[in-house]
């Protein structure tokens, strides 16, 4: 019983730690590759500041639709907010205007 309680407590602590550790990252980057996978897409971006490649996951229907009808394509510069824990984006927008 004690072991079970201790194990549960450890799992809870680890979960809280993971949640507390996840942070929102803001980034401007260039779309390198869009891979559609059912109800999500994995997008490879090149961070304009660091030059590093970053993979993020897009799940919202509005942005997925922009990939499908090619309103957002490879080479577009985008402004992105994502969770550095799971890589899921909350904002994914082209920077350029008219």
């Amino acid at each position: 019983m004690r072991k079970a309680i201790a194990a549960s407590a450890a799992v809870i602590m680890l979960s809280i730690g993971a949640i507390a550790g996840a942070a929102e990252v803001k980034m401007v980057g260039t779309v390198q590759k869009i891979e559609m996978q059912g109800g999500a897409a994995t997008v490879t971006l090149k961070d304009t500041k660091s030059g590093n490649e970053v993979k993020v996951t897009v799940k919202d229907d509005l942005t997925l639709d922009k990939f499908k009808d090619k309103r957002i394509v490879d080479g577009d510069e985008v402004r992105v907010k994502y969770d550095d824990g799971d890589g899921v984006v909350t904002i994914f927008r082209k920077t350029a205007g008219c």
């Binding site: 309103r71 927008r93 082209k94 205007g97 008219c98």
Partner: peptide
Amino acid sequence: VKNCMTCHEAAGGGVLVKRGFAFT
């Protein structure tokens, strides 16, 4: 909504810049 917002959300120099509303 997409047909309208393709132009109307991008007016003024970027997504949701001018009007600033998302019809979601």
